[in-house]
Design a protein around this nucleic acid. Structure first.
Length: 583
DNA sequence: GCCGTTTTCGGCCCGACTGTTTTCAGTCG
């Protein structure tokens, strides 16, 4: 997987630089590179093991792209990218990333105003020099000036973590739903696809009175700045410098509109090509017969996919990463739904220093949610501030056993969340660990060791016979802390070998393991568990994020142990421990 | 640059909004 990541990073740079050299993102060469990159991203084989001929067999990858992949695999670099970097240094690339500045404008700024960086652009605007260029005027200066101020505040290319964007979008959606002229509101875009970070929020509204909706929208207290405003599309910037796009459509167009605004761009392009091959055209208003102009489908997403002879493809899978081929072949995974989950296996109470709900409340909430089994997993002794020593954990067990009698509907597991130390060491000792019903082990510190060192410590935890699951694998906090550098392939192979489960941590700031890792885990047959890592009973609801995240990772529910009935789950746990040599 | 149940050449996804335009280019998603 390491090679694949490098190849994709090089292709992304190639696309950006070629857009500048060609002067258009619509250039056929740019689009060919984009198509090749999407095809390579969908490839689950290690690209470094593929020959030139095998690479060329991938649809969208021709002779040129195949040779480029080989070059990156063999040298770690690409000559053509190095040459383009000479012509377009990093400052110029940064300039092209300013919203509203495209490749044509970059070229003219450089040629005619000697502007080669964001700093140069700011100076040129301050001196009112942009208005001298034909095609640009005072309004453009004013608009770019505001954009630059925003870019300065947020940092270039700011993308909000999903944990910030989703609550914000849900708040705006609720405000719009409250308007009498609004019939329906859908959150679309990368948020609906559950990307880790969100560039802008896309809201889709059904209404007969778009102008009133637009007026009410820009008047919302969260709105800071109006970028564009028209009868069907309005873009604003809300507090915190996040852009929100609002589109208003009529009810009968909702399906086509949702598909269009959900994307991804790559997925949509593939759908349109599929439509064209059938003599149709697809846009945000529907699927239309090109010859007769007759509408083929538009009301629901199911209808549009159906007309294109495809089953419904869930939004998080719409990445242009092989989902159309899988859908056509009837090979989409049997996905997890919230109701499939029979238990939560990573939860804290106030026994943990950072827990916020008392144990009795946690257990009552678990039973109320209909869980058939459930594990408390307090922090352990290594986390001095928040963890429990042996005495405390044994006392917590007493309370748990008492609660079990009051709540016979849910089978309570006495669990713990062990800390994986710098060198792979675990809390307590083997004899003490062996008493526990359910053991999650996870990393909480030392996130910046080398890949070899990080991989070693995780492998050590996997090899421990008492560890039933590895929690939040990478330790990432989206937008704040990158995950550890790990040899994923080696870790997944070790999980298969030991039978240890991989946790899918449904906490929005984590969504860990990454979706590509989940997809690979599914291919290898790794057993997974989906858990909320709740520190308050309100967070039980995180399971809805977990199922979306699992969808993005193509997770099939047969691999998710806590979708299994109680007897099967407990049997699996018993067997796993027996084969790992636990007495 | 890629590709072919019309094609090895001639196409390549589609539309909204803005600004500076007398009819459209640039940018964005």
């Amino acid at each position: 997987m390491g090679h694949n990541t490098t190849v994709l990073a090089v292709f992304r740079e190639l696309i950006e630089l070629t857009t500048l050299s060609e002067g258009s993102p619509q250039s056929f060469r740019v689009r060919a590179y984009e198509r090749a990159a999407a095809a390579l991203a969908a490839e689950t084989r290690d690209l470094s093991t593929l020959s030139l001929a095998q690479l060329k067999k991938i649809a969208g990858v021709g002779a040129s792209a195949a040779a480029k992949v080989r070059e990156v695999v063999e040298t770690g670099e690409l000559n053509s990218v190095a040459a383009l970097r000479e012509r377009f240094p990093p400052d110029v690339v940064a300039l092209s990333r300013v919203p509203g500045v495209g490749p044509k404008t970059v070229a003219r700024l450089r040629d005619e105003l000697d502007v080669h960086s964001i700093d140069d652009l700011e100076a040129a605007i301050a001196a009112n020099r942009l208005r001298d260029l034909p095609g640009l005027g005072a309004k453009t200066e004013e608009k770019l000036s505001r954009t630059l101020a925003r870019v300065r505040r947020a940092g270039t290319m700011y993308r909000a973590p999903i944990a910030r964007a989703l609550p914000l979008a849900e708040g705006l959606a609720a405000a719009l739903r409250a308007l009498p002229e609004v019939q329906r509101v859908e959150i679309c875009g990368s948020l609906r696809r559950y990307r880790e970070t969100i560039g802008d929020v896309d809201l889709l509204v059904v209404s007969e009175e778009p102008l009133r909706v637009m007026a009410a929208f820009v008047a919302l207290p969260e709105v800071q700045d109006v970028v564009v405003m028209g009868p069907s599309k309005t873009s604003v910037v809300v507090r915190g410098d996040l852009q929100v796009d609002l589109r208003v459509v009529e009810a009968h167009q909702l399906g086509a509109a949702m598909m269009y605004f959900t994307g991804s761009k790559e997925h949509n392009i593939l759908l349109r090509q599929r439509a064209l091959a059938r003599g149709w055209s697809l846009n945000e208003y529907g699927l239309t017969d090109t010859a007769t102009g007759e509408l083929v489908a538009c009301a629901t997403e199911e209808e549009v996919y159906g007309a294109l002879q495809l089953p419904f493809i869930p939004a998080p899978m719409r990445q242009g990463a092989g989902e159309l081929d899988a859908a056509e072949a009837g090979e989409l995974p049997d996905l997890v739904a919230v109701d499939d989950l029979k238990g939560d296996l990573h939860v804290h109470s106030t026994w943990s220093g950072d827990g916020r709900s008392p144990l009795a409340d946690v257990v009552a909430a678990a039973e109320a949610r209909g869980y058939r089994y459930f594990s408390l997993t307090e922090h352990a002794e290594d986390l001095v501030m928040n963890g429990l020593d042996r005495e405390q954990l044994l006392r917590q067990r007493e309370e748990l056993m008492a609660l079990q009698e009051q709540h016979p509907g849910v089978h309570l597991l006495w669990g713990v969340e062990l800390n994986i130390g710098r060198d792979g060491g675990l809390d307590y000792d083997p004899a003490f660990r062996a008493q526990l019903d359910w053991v999650v082990a996870a990393v909480h510190s030392h996130f910046d060791l080398t890949q070899a060192a990080q991989t070693r410590r995780i492998l050590a935890a996997i090899a421990d016979p008492h560890v039933d699951a590895i929690g939040h694998l990478s330790g990432r906090m989206i937008g704040k802390r990158p995950g550890m550098d790990l040899d994923i392939e080696e870790i997944l192979q070790a999980l298969v070998h030991s039978g240890t489960a991989l946790e899918l941590n449904a906490a929005l700031p984590r969504l860990d393991a990454a979706s590509e890792v989940l997809r690979r885990a599914g291919e290898l047959g790794v057993t997974m568990v989906m858990s909320t890592d709740s520190h308050h009973v309100r967070q039980f609801d995180r399971m809805r994020h977990g199922v979306q995240w699992a969808t993005r990772g193509w997770v099939d529910k047969r691999h998710v142990a806590n979708t299994w009935p109680k007897e099967r789950f407990l049997g699996w746990l018993r067997d796993r421990r027996a084969s790992a040599g636990v007495a």
